[in-house]
Amino acid sequence: MKIFALIPAFNEETTIADVLTHTRPFVDGMIVVDDGSTDRTSEIARAQGAVCLRHVINRGLGAALGTGFETAKRLGADVVVTLDADGQHDPEEIQKFVEAVGKGADVVIGSRMLTGFVGMPIHRRIAQVLGNLVTFLLFGAWVTDSQSGYRAFNQFALSKIQVKTNRMEVSSELIAEAKRNALTLVEVPIRAIYTDYSLSKGQSFFVGIKTLFKLVVRRLSR
């Protein structure tokens, strides 16, 4: 089974090398989508042996994942595991995702809630629960951590899922797409490593509102 890690990165030169070094032992290939970084993210990623795609301008998380999925398909990936470039996901847990896919899951979501949101500030937890509710109300799919960046997709899921949104709304969109295509969705508990760095990279309340609005439009435009 050909396992690829897909890491979208935007100005992550301080953490990307570490993330790639720790990810390498668990995968057959690493794809980094440098989403218009102005720092050395892509140079470092290439030096670490990752396939690095560079967006000329910043297009957002959804666009970066879309590019990564296309590339993974071309490289003949059987499983694609997406993880964040800020170091909040422990690559050792990739095995859990691969196991879940082996047991028949098409889409696997790593849930921080199943491990009790350890180390997550309270206002973030509330935002997460709201994100879950919005995903459920708009798309009818319930998961315990709809905004998680740690996910896995098998080849079948990749062939079915269409990413249309550009930015943070993609997390909910992927779950909606899994539901629409009747894919088997499984959640595995994950532990997020919160550092001052990864927390500073989080999203603000305002971005949350914008994301909500775009999800409503996405729902209507179907």
């Binding site: 560079r54 967006h55 590019t67 775009k214 439009v217």
Partner: peptide, 24 residues
């Protein structure tokens, strides 16, 4: 207009993706 802008954003993304993949 909002819907139109969303469409244009999607088109820009497709262009940026094409450029990235060609470069690879």
């Amino acid at each position: 207009l909002y819907v139109k802008i969303e469409q244009v954003e999607g088109e820009i993304t497709r262009l940026v993706r094409k450029l990235a993949m060609d470069e690879m």
